Simulated assay, not measured.
Amino acid sequence: MYCHHGDDFLDQCHRGDDFLDQCHRGDDFLDQCHRGDDFLDQCHRQKHPKCFHVCSVCGADIYDRLWTNNLDIAKRTLEVPFLQDMQLGDLQADYYVSFTIQDVAYLVKVTEMLKQMCQKVKEPEDIHQFMLERFNSYNKYAEETLKLFNLKSVSDINLTSAMKKYLSDYTSIMNDKDPIYFVVALLPFARLWLWLANHLKETPCNAYFTWKKQNSQGHPEKHYKALLNKYLTTADQITQANSIFRQQMQNEHEFFASSLKKQNSSCKCKP
């Protein structure tokens, strides 16, 4: 369906081929750059024991470290029945509609949290500005989406267990962690949906090609990269950020996985 974004938010959430080239996030580059866990250990603990920001050997910064450290979840998410059936073009429409409804609830609930963060976080100025920009972007798209579905609110939507946990984890991070970790919590969605869209093998003839097209371009690094590299500078901070990032990546995985259980996968009826 949608990607939680208006025109401004498209820049946040999507990455096209040009960006993939710029960020070198393809599997081939990962091999060339040796940015797996073993190399990070060698680079940051042996050669650069005090370096937690940017590695002078491979150029891997926190923004990219968080992604490469948790790429395994992205790969597992791509294999869930919901996305595989989307890729084949035979996902039953009712499952897609249910997924979309949960997605709308997510959009509205996270918009409300961003509003709270705007009111709560006044300093540092750059983090306040980040929250304000994300709120304006999410809010614009939330209003457009509710209007599209003729909804006044999402109060009557019954959340799935996966979505309840996802939103609960957001709330805990918002209430219990420093604001920079809420920034971290938002990032998995921004990067994962783009990565999934670019890895789904679909043609324009596919009924779900619109989802791929809407989510396949963007530049989330414009919003996140500088902040993460500025405020996550110690081993403890990076460890905590990675834990939150992985938790939210897993929540994304569960959202997609719960949208179509294996036993409910589209039937392959004989003609």
Rank of each mutant, 00 (worst) to 15 (best):
N206H: 02
L186M: 07
F189W: 09
K75C: 00
M113D: 02
D11P: 07
S266T: 15
Q250W: 05
Y224H: 13
W195G: 08
S266V: 08
L107S: 07
K147S: 15
D21A: 07
Q116T: 14
L151R: 14
E112D: 10
V110M: 00
P124L: 01
K270C: 07
N158S: 12
H34G: 13
V57P: 09
Q129C: 13
A241H: 07
M113Y: 03
S155G: 06
R76Y: 04
C58F: 06
H34A: 13
A74I: 10
R65Y: 03
W195Q: 09
E112H: 06
E254M: 14
S258A: 07
S259T: 02
L187K: 03
H223K: 10
K152C: 12
K201W: 00
I127N: 02
A241E: 07
H128R: 11
I157A: 05
Y181K: 09
Q217S: 13
L66R: 07
L71Y: 08
W195P: 07
L20I: 13
A257V: 01
Q116F: 09
Y106S: 06
K262H: 07
C267G: 12
L30S: 12
L83G: 04
D169L: 03
N139H: 15
S155D: 14
K164V: 07
Q129S: 15
L83N: 06
N70Y: 03
L227S: 01
N69R: 11
K152D: 13
G36L: 08
N251T: 04
I73L: 06
Q248M: 15
K165G: 05
S153V: 04
V110S: 01
A197I: 02
G26V: 06
H253F: 03
I180F: 03
K152I: 08
L227F: 00
L20V: 15
P179I: 00
I127C: 03
K261C: 10
I73M: 04
F39N: 13
D103T: 04
Y106Q: 11
D64Y: 12
P204E: 01
N251D: 08
C43V: 03
L146F: 08
L196G: 02
L132P: 03
H53V: 12
H223R: 14
D8R: 11
L40G: 10
